[in-house]
Design a protein around this nucleic acid. Structure first.
Lengths: 141, 141
DNA sequence: CTCATTTAGTTACTTAAGTAAATAAAGGAG
DNA sequence: CTCCTTTATTTACTTAAGTAACTAAATGAG
């Protein structure tokens, strides 16, 4: 952008999405779809609102991705007691396929980070969290 | 995604683009447009290929952004001696508006990074560069 | 010189995500 | 109970960027 940190962060974002899309191709998934599947698996069952709040994206993004994943047979949805909300869970096939996909993702991610020591990884995550901490809690200044 | 570093990196990317778009709104620009203007300013004159190689994106992305910026009067293009290539430079208005825009961007970026010390900034950039270093040079392992 | 190959840019189509505005159910004040 | 407000989701439109396939100019082998 101008600042080298932000520049680097943007470049890595593009590089990583590109590569993760490539890795996921063999499972017929895209990165954003995988992130939704992963987060539903983590919580077993979620409303759309819970998903977009967890992933920190806007609601329409999740409407679209969940619809697509439902069409593709990865997700099953039902109406909640509150009839406005849509509750999503993984389909049987998805649950079955999940371990294998997780494996390839773990492999991919560890390849990406193989030049970092464990300590560096911890440092990196702490430093990333310090960027733009408006919502984290206004600490000083 | 699953790995907290990559997860955090993706979140920060979204947060930062959102906020930089918000800051640029008063200049009638979007983040990607600004990055093209900035890099042309840095090099005075560039071909499309030089731009997309510098920014590390694909060619069609730059075709689109440059066309839009030309329509909007930010850029001027001409044909090179090699008649396949399109050479781009900033328009007079762009050059005039640039200092003010730069100022707001610098302000924005330093706000984003104000919780990091200078040393932490240096560390962060080094750590980011270690991610997925396939193209950087395969060093060890 | 001619033709095959490479290079620069574009076009068409797709994923990803954002904003603004609409719909529709739930909840609350009176 | 009625009406207003809030909440959950959706729809329409836009920016950003990718892939694949195309055009057209340049280059190089013969």
């Amino acid at each position: 952008m101008l600042n080298p940190i932000i520049h680097e962060l943007f470049q890595k974002y593009r590089l990583l999405t590109k590569e993760v899309n490539n890795v996921l191709k063999k499972h017929d998934l895209f990165a954003a779809q995988w992130s939704v599947i992963y987060c539903i698996d983590l919580h077993t069952e979620m409303t759309l609102t819970q998903i977009w709040k967890y992933l920190n994206v806007e609601a329409p993004t999740i409407t679209r991705t969940v619809n697509r994943l439902e069409e593709m047979g990865w997700l099953v949805t039902r109406e909640g007691k509150d009839r406005r909300e849509k509750i999503v869970r993984l389909s049987e096939e998805a649950i079955q396929k999940l371990p294998h996909i997780k494996e390839t993702i773990i492999q991919f991610e560890s390849d990406c980070l193989n030049r970092l020591t464990l300590e560096e990884e911890n440092q990196l995550i702490l430093l990333l969290r310090k960027i733009d901490g408006k919502e984290v809690l206004v600490r000083d200044k």
